[in-house]
Amino acid sequence: MQLARIVGHAVSHIYHPSLRGWRLLIAQPLDKNQRPDGEPLLVIDQLGASIGSLVILSNDGQGARELVRDPNSPVRWFVLGLPD
């Protein structure tokens, strides 16, 4: 799991079928003192994370595939939780 901050969202009209209907956010992974750590990621979100909020991301591919209910989905990162 990884701490990250949502810094925006992305719009895509041509995508892998398993991404249909999913909200695509741009998340910047953070290290332990909330400094940027690596490149921004495209994550799918079902919890309604607002832009600018802190989130916990998961990179468990198996969990992501179960989330989108498609065993052939290339998606990996998804919003797991919204820390208070």
Binding site: R5, V11, Y15, H16, L19, L42, G52
Partner: peptide
């Protein structure tokens, strides 16, 4: 590496980006 989607629009929130950077 697999191209999973073509991005038509990338919206970045200035305030959130400034805060992170």
């Amino acid at each position: 590496a697999y191209c999973a989607c073509l991005l038509d629009h990338l919206y970045l929130d200035e305030q959130a980006t400034r805060e992170v950077l």
